[in-house]
Nucleic acid binder design. Structure first.
Lengths: 355, 355
DNA sequence: ACGCATTCCGTAAACGTTTACGATCCTATG
DNA sequence: CATAGGATCGTAAACGTTTACGGAATGCGT
C-alpha cells in the first residue's frame, strides 16, 4: 500500500533523497529514465518512490523545463453546442487520448464559459502556460483565435477549417463531400428540387456545406435556389422548423439534406403531421454524428465516420508539429479532410416518377 | 494592441520591472492588488503589463504559493458514458463556471481514458497538483477514489452518492424521489404491475433508483417482483431491449418506468412493432436529462430539472469546503439531494379499467 | 605503475513568482 | 528640532524541480 503510516509526510524529492541517502540529482535522473545512473540504484529509487507515494510536483518541473506534458482541448460550451454536439467531443477525445497516452501526455478539456469571449478565454489559458499545445474546435469562418495562436508560437491543431488559419495544421470533416454525395444520390433517384439545412454561414461548417451543395447542383445543371437553403439549429427543434419552412414553400422540394441526423426526428414529426411520409413523399439524407436516431422509421440514409479515428489523426497531426515529437511523427499530413461513408437507409430509397 | 512590435519579447516579471525601473517585488504587489504600493505606480504597472501583454507564469506562482486557481471536473469517458450523457456534463459545467468565474477560478475537465483505471488516473492528476479542488462524477456504489481523496486532503465534492464517501460533501439527483413519484402516479392511474429499468446496481444510481421503486411499491402494498426490474444501457438501444424483455414476460406489466428519456425512443419503437401503442396500451414514465425526445409521440411524462442550477449548487458546496472561500460560502449544506419536477405528458395519461 | 576512458554521483544554478523583512522617505506631532 | 509612525519600495529567500558540470571511483590496456 502506498504511503503507509510510519513515514513522514512526503514533501518533495528532498525527502525521498534523504530517505535513500542519495542526492536529489540522482533521484531525479533515476525517476526520469536519464542515463548516468546505476541500474540498481534506479530500482531502489523507483521502489522507494512507489512505496512512499512520491510523484513529482508539476509546478516545479514545468517551471524548470518549461513544459507541462498536458494538451488542452478548447470547447465552447455555448447553449447551442450543449444541446446538440453531445457525444462528439467525448468520442474524439477517446482517439486523442489513445495517442497521447503513448507519450505520457495528458489531455484536459478547456470549456469556455458561455458569457466569455472565446478569444479572451484562450488568451488567459495560453498565458497560464498549463498546456504545451492546443486543439481548437468549433472554428468560426473568421476566427481571431488563430491570430493569437500564431503570435504565441504555441503548437496547435484546429478541428475545423477557418479562413484565419493560414498554413497551420487542421483536420476537418468532409462536409463538402457529404453535400456532394447527397446531391449525387438524390439526383440519381430523379430529384431535382433539393433543399438543404445548415447552420449560419458564420460557422465555417455552414458555409462549406452549402457551398458543396451549390457546386454539386451546378455540376448537374440544376439552378441554385436560395429559398431552398434553410438556416436552422442542429437539433430536433431545428429539424421541425426546417420542415415547417419547407411546407410553406409554393413549390415544395422533393428531397431535403440535413446536416445533423438529430434534425430528422423533428423533421419526420412535422412532415407526418402534414400527412407526408418520409421516404415515400419526401427523401431525407443526413450526417450521422451520433448513433442517436438509429430507431427512426424509416431508417435514415446518412453519412457517418469513426470519430475515434479522427481523434487519432488529429493527435498525430498535432504531435508532428511539436518539436519534441516531430521526429516520431514526420510532417507529412499537416492538413486533412476526413472522409465519411454513405450508409444507405430507406429515407431516400424511392425513385421519383418522371414529371 | 497588446504586445506591439517594438518591445523585446516578454520573458517574465523581470523584464516588466526593468522596463518600468521598479523592483519585481513592487510589480508583483501591484499586479496582485496587494497593499503597500502607491496607487499611481499601480496604474503604471497595470498599463505596462497590458501593453506588453504580460501575464504571470502559472508554474512560478503556483510553485511559490501552492495554489493554482483551477478546479478539476473528473469524467470517465467510458463507452457507455459517451453514448449517453455528454450534454449532461456540459450543462452542469455552465452552472459551475458561473460561480467559479466570480472568484477567478477556472474549470478544466479531466477525462479519464477508457483503458485506464479511474483510481490510477485520479492519483496521477492529484499528484500533478494542477487543480486546487476536484469534482468527482459518475460515482460507483463502492468507489476507491474517495479513499484516495480522503488521504490527500484535497477539497472535493461528489456528483452522485457513494457508500465510500463518508462525511464528505456531495450532491445527487433525487432518483429515489423520481421512482417514488413515478410509482405513485402510475398506481393512482390504476396500475399495479409496474416494470422499471435501471443500470447495474454497481452504479449507485442503479441501486438507489430500484430501491426507491421497491419501497414505493411496498407502501402501496404491491409485491416486488424481480422479474420486472430490467437492467439495461441508458440508450435507445437499451430501451429497445427493455421492451423486448418485457414482451417476453408471461404476465406483462401495464406500465414501465425508464431511467432515461432517451430509452423511450427505442421502447416506443419496439412495442409499436408488437402492435402496442404507448400511452394507450402501456404507460411510460422517464427522467429527462436532456431535451432530446421532445418530439416523441405521445409526449413522454417525465421528471426533469435544471442541471445548470445543480451546477451552481455543486460549486457552492465545493467552495464552502475550501479554506480560502469558506468565509464566503458558509458550511450550511454539505450534502444535498437535488429535486426534480414532474412534467406530465401523455404517455401515461390513460386509466386502467378495473380488472 | 601509469594513463585514460567510463560509470556513477553530488553540487549548485536556474526556472518565475510571491512575500517576509527591512530600508528609506515623508509627514505630523510633541 | 527630534522622533514616531505611516507610506512606499527594494532585497532576498523560498517553492520543487531538472540539468550542466565536475569529481571520484573503477576498469582497462600498456
Amino acid at each position: 500500500m502506498a504511503h503507509g503510516g510510519k513515514h513522514p509526510p512526503m514533501k518533495g524529492i528532498r525527502q525521498l533523497a534523504d530517505h535513500l541517502d542519495i542526492s536529489i540529482g540522482t533521484v531525479s535522473r533515476a525517476l526520469n529514465g536519464k542515463p548516468d545512473v546505476n541500474e540498481e540504484t534506479r530500482k531502489r529509487v523507483l521502489a522507494a518512490a512507489e512505496q512512499l507515494g512520491y510523484v513529482a510536483n508539476q509546478s516545479g518541473r514545468s517551471l524548470r523545463q518549461g513544459t507541462t506534458n498536458v494538451i488542452g482541448l478548447m470547447i465552447q460550451s455555448s447553449r447551442e453546442t450543449v444541446e446538440n454536439s453531445d457525444n462528439f467531443f467525448l468520442t474524439v477525445t477517446g482517439g486523442l487520448q489513445s495517442v497521447f497516452a503513448r507519450h505520457n501526455l495528458d489531455l484536459i478539456m478547456l470549456p469556455c464559459p458561455n458569457d466569455e469571449d472565446p478569444y479572451e478565454y484562450l488568451k488567459r489559458m495560453v498565458a497560464r502556460r498549463v498546456v504545451d499545445a492546443l486543439i481548437i474546435s468549433e472554428t468560426q469562418r473568421i476566427d481571431k483565435r488563430f491570430d493569437l495562436l500564431a503570435k504565441t508560437k504555441i503548437p496547435f491543431v484546429a478541428l475545423g477549417r477557418s479562413l484565419s488559419i493560414g498554413q497551420h495544421p487542421w483536420a476537418d470533416l468532409d462536409f463538402d463531400g457529404v453535400a456532394n454525395g447527397a446531391v449525387d444520390r438524390l439526383v440519381a433517384h430523379g430529384h431535382r428540387r433539393i433543399a438543404i439545412s445548415a447552420p449560419s454561414s458564420d460557422i465555417n461548417l455552414g458555409f462549406i456545406f452549402v457551398e458543396g451543395y451549390r457546386r454539386a447542383l451546378e455540376r448537374h445543371g440544376i439552378a441554385y435556389d436560395p429559398a431552398l437553403v434553410i438556416r436552422a439549429k442542429s437539433s430536433e427543434q431545428g429539424g421541425y422548423q426546417v420542415a415547417d419552412e419547407l411546407l410553406r414553400l409554393e413549390e415544395r422540394p422533393t428531397a431535403v439534406i440535413l446536416i445533423y441526423e438529430l434534425m430528422a426526428i423533428g423533421l419526420y414529426r412535422r412532415v407526418m403531421e402534414a400527412g407526408i411520409i418520409p421516404g415515400r413523399d419526401i427523401a431525407v439524407v443526413g450526417f450521422r454524428e451520433a448513433p442517436r436516431a438509429k430507431f427512426l422509421q424509416p431508417p435514415l440514409t446518412c453519412f457517418r465516420t469513426s470519430l475515434h479515428e479522427l481523434g487519432v489523426e488529429l493527435a498525430e497531426i498535432l504531435l508532428s508539429s511539436m518539436p519534441a515529437y516531430s521526429h516520431i511523427y514526420p510532417q507529412t499530413k499537416r492538413q486533412m479532410i476526413w472522409p465519411l461513408q454513405l450508409v444507405p437507409g430507406e429515407s431516400d430509397s424511392f425513385h421519383l416518377k418522371a414529371e
